[in-house]
Write a protein that binds this DNA or RNA. Structure first.
Length: 193
DNA sequence: CCGCTGATAATCT
DNA sequence: GATTATCAGCGGA
């Protein structure tokens, strides 16, 4: 038995977020390799689950291995992978390197540049066709496919984006130097100033 | 490259 | 009424 993605869901959510970088996500065969994630959990003031269960966040309090999809700023959809050892934990998918169904993604996004297809949580949901209809859907069944890594990628850590609380927690993970990130990763301070 | 700002709706005060 | 796990378009450097 090789390592299945499901085996990762019981890890602490910060480790799950790290482990999902390099995995592949497809929706109806469209998607690519996850290159940027962030971890959230119920003890984290920046998390949607911090205030306790709500109608919108029900999926985050539900079973691991399912999607938590919510609307952001009234306009965009954002997708999380529910899982982690903590209560109501999930990993926000922030960027994907598109590999499968490029034409479908370009059509949905109204763009040509592969760099901009999935570079951001709202963008990747638009490109893969993820909406609130998939909130709570299991990731091991159609239309989803969440596939394990074939090799361990290089990964760097940083602060999460777009939050106003717990801003210093280093719970953002990304492939260093990837051209498909939502925003560049802040590299370590230059040696010698 | 950078910063500013409007769009738009669920949630919270 | 304010805030929010965002994005695109714009203008200036």
């Amino acid at each position: 038995m090789t390592t299945a993605v499901a085996d990762l869901f019981t890890l602490p959510v910060v480790e799950l977020a790290r482990a999902l970088v390099g995995c592949r996500l497809l929706v109806d065969g469209v998607g690519g390799t996850i290159v940027e994630t962030e971890a959230y959990h119920a003890g984290d003031p920046a998390s949607h689950s911090f205030a306790g269960p709500r109608p919108r966040t029900a999926a985050m309090f539900g079973a691991a291995g399912h999607a938590y999809v919510y609307r952001s700023y009234g306009l965009h959809w954002c997708m999380n992978v529910v899982g982690g050892a903590e209560t109501a934990a999930a990993v926000l998918l922030r960027a994907i390197e598109p590999t499968d169904g490029m034409e479908r993604m370009a059509a949905r996004r109204g763009l040509d540049d592969p760099r901009l297809l999935c570079a951001g949580p709202g963008r990747l949901c638009q490109a893969l066709g993820i909406t609130g209809a998939l909130d709570g859907a299991p990731l091991d069944a159609a239309p989803f496919a969440l596939l394990p890594r074939t090799a361990a990628p290089a990964i760097v850590t940083g602060s999460r984006i777009g939050i106003t609380k717990a801003m210093d927690e280093p719970w953002r993970f990304a492939v260093p130097g990837s051209r498909f990130l939502s925003r560049p990763m802040r590299i370590g301070r230059p040696a010698g100033g």
